[in-house]
Structure formats: C-alpha cells, structure tokens
C-alpha cells in the first residue's frame, strides 16, 4: 500500500518526503482531509522516474507515405493525430515538429478542454514527453523522426 498523507502532513514533512522520493524512488500520496466527499489524491513522485516510465510506455511511431502524384512525403503521428507533408522528408519532419509544439502549447493552455474530450484525453502523456524537451532537435528525437 502506498502511504497516504494529509496535506498538512505533507506541508510539515515535505523535505523528508522529497528526499525519500529522490533517493529511494518512493511515491507518496496526499489527500485533502477536508474534502471527505472525494477519494482523490495527488502523487509526489520523482520526476526522473515519471519521465522514464513515460519514455518507455508512450513512444511515437511516425508513419511515412510517399505520394507519387503530388511528389510529397506525408508523415503522421497517429498517437496525437498530428500530420503534415512536404517535398522532402527533412522538411516534413521540421513541419511536424512545428505542428507538434503548437498542439502541445494549445493542449496545455486548455488542459481542461482537451482532457475532457474522450478522443484527445489520451494525448496528455505523449505531450508531457514533448513539453520536457528543451530544443527542437530533442523534440525530433522524441518523435522518432
């Protein structure tokens, strides 16, 4: 069983919990004792650990397709429904990065809207991986382009 702490416990013991999470990969749950109507908790977890899990579980598998008639490469990320096309693969990859970054920003700005949509709520862990990237080259790598 994961230990459940009240918010006030977390407040007073945060330094200790933080240390245990970082050193021993322990996860802690915090609950709001005043909100008895819901059994919602919040996790305190080592960010590196979360990143590792997401990297392993939420990989991007871009789908490339050559359109002979229009002489264009199209590339799709089925995981987040982002796609584009261009005369070269390199250009298409760059455009895909632009589109992904824009979607990521929009998604996080309107998290309440997107996470309420059944066909888009599952995009969050994928976009969480993108938002951790510091530059476009890293995004390209995460997208497996």
């Amino acid at each position: 069983m994961l230990p459940v702490n009240s918010i006030s416990q977390v407040r007073t013991e945060f330094q200790k919990l933080f240390k245990q999470a970082v050193l021993y990969n322990r996860e802690f749950l915090a609950e709001n004792a005043k909100e008895t109507s819901s059994d919602e908790t919040v996790s305190i977890i080592r960010t590196k650990l979360l990143d590792e899990w997401l990297d392993r579980a939420y990989t991007f598998n871009p789908v490339w397709e050559w359109d002979e008639e229009n002489k264009l490469w199209s590339v799709t990320l089925p995981e987040i429904r982002i796609y584009t096309d261009a005369p070269t693969k390199e250009e298409a990859a760059e455009q895909l990065v632009d589109l992904t970054l824009e979607y990521c920003e929009d998604y996080l700005n309107r998290l309440d809207l997107f996470t309420a949509l059944p066909d888009r709520s599952g995009h969050y862990p994928y976009l969480r991986r993108i938002v951790r990237c510091k530059e476009a080259a890293q995004v390209k790598e995460v997208l497996n382009l």
Binding site: E65, T76, Y83, D85, Y103, R120
Partner: peptide, 26 residues
C-alpha cells in the same frame, strides 16, 4: 469537437494523399 492543423507551407498547393486522408478522418 473537431480540430485540424495545417502547416503554412501547405498554403496554395495540393496536399499529399496521406494528409488528406487524416484530415477526412479528423
């Protein structure tokens, strides 16, 4: 709720079949 995003470089030209088929789905 529908959402489609297209890169500005596609403006004024044909779109690739793969792109069009994704847009139709979306």
């Amino acid at each position: 709720f529908l959402r489609v995003s297209v890169h500005w470089k596609a403006d004024g030209r044909n779109l690739a079949k793969g792109t069009v088929s994704q847009i139709a789905k979306d």
